[in-house]
């Protein structure tokens, strides 16, 4: 029997896993499959979980590894250059901010999967760069680089800033700061 405390930790992690999976895959139905299989694997290998570490991070690792292995298996398009994934996003039920939500999903879908996952982990989940590196099985430098690229690209996609204003030029940045400070 699984320790009730561990079960509780898994339960608490479910909304996080689900938000992560939906944002990562862009598909609510598929995301739920990913969450379900992460939970089942987590329960199956619960003995491997190290008490005192983050259950959520552990389940994130299981979920994203499974997602990547399915990507490999089915050779899904990762970069989605033609916007296939972006164009076939599952539309969520009507909500006040529904438009914003689908805008964000569509924009996220245009990032590479590596950029998407790191932006979600660091930018939305608020995990540290170190923990993101552990979850993604890569180095701190790679994570930082991906975050930078991902947020630059996402800002462009969401029209938060004209592309030329993202240039590494202090004059341009100063000009931008002037414009946005109104």
């Amino acid at each position: 029997m699984v320790d009730p405390a561990l079960r509780q930790q898994m339960l608490v992690a479910v909304p996080h896993l689900r938000a992560f999976a939906i944002s990562l895959s862009g598909d609510v139905g598929y995301a739920d499959d990913l969450v379900q299989s992460a939970l089942m694997r987590g329960l199956e290998y619960i003995d491997k979980f190290q008490p005192g570490t983050s259950m959520q991070a552990w389940l994130f690792t299981i979920l994203r590894n499974n997602y990547y292995s399915e990507l490999r298996k089915y050779r899904r398009e990762v970069e989605d250059p033609d916007g296939i994934m972006a164009g076939s996003l599952a539309v969520l039920p009507e909500q006040d901010a529904c438009l914003d939500l689908n805008d964000m999903l569509a924009a996220l879908a245009q990032l590479s999967v590596e950029q998407r996952e790191v932006l979600l982990l660091v930018g939305a989940e608020g995990v540290s760069y170190e923990e993101a590196a552990n979850i993604c099985g890569t180095t701190l430098g790679t994570i930082k680089s991906r975050v930078n690229r991902a947020r630059t690209r996402l800002a462009e996609l969401l029209d938060l800033v004209p592309e030329e204003d993202l240039a590494p030029n202090r004059v341009i940045q100063a000009t931008l700061a002037m414009h946005v400070s109104f």
Partner: peptide, 27 residues
């Protein structure tokens, strides 16, 4: 790659807010 262009703080702030709003809606 490590010499990334620095990101305008205000854009970063706005982007972070949008991301978190998106996420909390899903949560």
């Amino acid at each position: 790659e490590l010499r990334e262009p620095s990101f305008p703080p205000r854009v970063a702030l706005c982007l972070g807010e949008r991301l978190r709003a998106h996420y909390s809606q899903l949560m």
